[in-house]
Design a protein around this nucleic acid. Structure first.
Lengths: 139, 139
DNA sequence: TATCTAGTTTATAATAATTCTAAACTAGAA
DNA sequence: TTCTAGTTTAGAATTATTATAAACTAGATA
């Protein structure tokens, strides 16, 4: 496997989260992070892309494990939906989403596009970890 | 079965949505709407409550069907979470939620507690149907 | 470089939530 | 009272995810 600059970066990233840089994880990194635009996906769609050309195969279990590890490490963000499937986003910056009820597609909304002038205080002893807005749209 | 005023109301509600007022649907109505506070639930929790005392039994399939029908009719609102389970809310008014990552509990936030001073324009040809804020909290 | 071990991957089984199916039942119109 | 479309039901099927345990491997250490 050719170790590109990106791959070196991924190795660093993984090590800093105590994840061994295995060839499977690096391959998944390429599919997730070697992109211009941010990427919304489910384990199912990611699995299809990675294993379409059956050069090197990554098992479904590994994809589940890795996506979970990346989410815990903060490299991926889980998206809120009402569907019984987990959606992830490579854009981990604070941002929001349009959810199109017709096409069932998610689109990013840059955080600067939404401004809140009033936010409630959290219950006693709790801190706000994150705030997400989902705007459902339709025709 | 004693037809209370509430039940008469439910019959009206159901008819206006072209749902026959069967005894199962009316029973589910009582569990959902005969309350002071709004109620967050999953099909699992609702099923347990309804079938705890095995006086009259309602099948799981009917609970699924009815919850879906009520959601389509606008009597229930599906809640966005990142868990692979459907959550519903009897509060169909526009409002928001705290999601406690520790206890995994949802709490309502009254719509007046959050104010947005800037909202993006939806993509061409699309209208905003609904806007929801989820604030994730933790210790 | 060879050895060792904890971490990782894998195929497969298990589980959990939901949807499907088709037979039996029922509301309510005629 | 009869009839029919809508409804309910138990159980099977499907789908997403998690668990299992055996085989493999990264990389530390001798």
């Amino acid at each position: 496997m050719i170790i590109s600059d990106n791959l070196k970066m991924y190795v660093k990233k993984l090590r800093s989260s105590n994840l061994r840089p295995t060839k499977q994880r690096l391959k998944i990194c390429q599919y997730l992070f070697d992109r211009d635009k941010t990427f919304h996906f489910t384990v199912e769609t990611l699995n299809k892309k990675i294993n379409k050309n059956r050069a090197t195969k990554v098992s479904l279990a590994t994809i589940y494990n890795t996506v979970e590890a990346f989410t815990n490490a903060g490299y991926l963000k889980e998206i809120l939906t009402s569907k019984n499937k987990s959606y992830y986003d490579t854009n981990i910056k604070s941002h929001h989403h349009f959810y199109d009820e017709g096409s069932k597609e998610l689109t990013d909304i840059h955080y600067s596009q939404i401004k809140l002038s009033k936010v409630p205080t959290p219950p006693k002893g709790k801190k706000i970890k994150n705030l997400e807005v989902v705007i459902r749209i339709q025709k």
